[in-house]
Simulated assay, not measured.
Amino acid sequence: MGILSRASYVIRSKLNAILNRAEDPSETLDYSYEKMRDELQQVKQGIADLTTQKKRLEIQKRRLEENVEKHNEQAREAVRQDREDLARQALEKKQSKMEQIEQLETQIADLQETQDNLVEKKDKLQSRIEEFRTKKETMKARYEAAEASSRVSEAMTGAGDEMADVSRAIERAEERTDEMEARAAAMDELEDTGAFDDALSDKDSIDRELEAGRASSEVDSELETLKAELGKSSSSPSSSADADADADVEVEAESEPETESQGGNDDPAVEAELEELKNEEDA
């Protein structure tokens, strides 16, 4: 099989498949019924035309018969007047009209036979059309019932195209919902950990640690203040002695880091920067 033959075969098969899917039996039956009715109407029109033609020939035949009778009278009158020549002419015309009448009778008989055949065919065709109409309505009812049953079955089993689309839509909605729920949970977790605050702030990790240290220092300072207030309100000498001892400890604790920082760091630039920071805090 050549390429063109194969291509033609494939195209015809594809078109046939498309037509089969697009074909509606109800519409096909209705179309066939209308075509048969059109044919019946054409047959009736042909019978009417044939009958009209036959009537014209019959009228022409009657006129010829009247002429024949007229020529008979002319021949008799000519004989009574001893005009044999006129009588002969009248009889010749009569003979010509008789021949025409015979031809018309043959044509009329043929038309009558054709008309009878057409009437018989028309009756058979009309009977077939009525039979087809009954069968058409029965087939349409069966098809519509089968189609409705198929749709119900597809809806119940979810095998139909529309139900498949609905199922896919539900699956997509569930996936989208799960995704949005996971995203919302992630946002809540990030908000709880303070990630959003860190992201929106322009401070780095050193600034945040320094702020945390200052907050802790303020808490310690307030705690010492409360201790001092409680110590002043106490009347026992031991409390005063303890307060003095605590003060000495604090003084020693403050002096020791300075000594360590001075002896432990050999970098002059770092020492100078630390000294500047201390001066700023004292100021």
Rank of each mutant, 00 (worst) to 15 (best):
G2P: 05
S8Q: 06
I11N: 05
S13T: 06
A17N: 12
D24L: 09
E27T: 06
L29F: 05
Y31A: 12
S32C: 15
S32I: 12
K35M: 15
M36D: 03
R37I: 07
L40C: 04
V43K: 11
K44A: 10
I47R: 13
E58S: 13
Q60W: 01
N67W: 05
N72T: 14
E73I: 13
E77T: 14
A78K: 07
Q81C: 14
R83G: 05
D85Q: 02
D85P: 02
S96H: 09
S96Q: 09
E99W: 01
Q100D: 11
T114L: 03
N117C: 03
K121T: 02
I129Q: 03
E130L: 00
T138R: 07
A146M: 04
S149C: 04
E154A: 00
E154G: 00
A155N: 04
T157P: 01
G158E: 02
E162A: 08
A164V: 06
D165E: 09
D165P: 00
E174I: 09
E174D: 06
E179L: 09
E181T: 10
A182Y: 01
A182F: 02
R183K: 12
R183I: 11
A186T: 05
L190R: 10
T193R: 12
A199M: 14
K203S: 11
D204A: 09
E211W: 11
E211A: 15
A212V: 15
S216M: 10
S217W: 10
E218L: 08
D220M: 14
S221P: 01
T225D: 04
L226V: 08
K227G: 13
K227D: 09
P237D: 02
S238L: 14
S239C: 03
S240N: 08
A243I: 03
D246F: 05
A253G: 15
A253C: 12
E260Q: 12
E260A: 13
S261D: 02
P268A: 09
V270D: 01
E271V: 15
E276L: 12
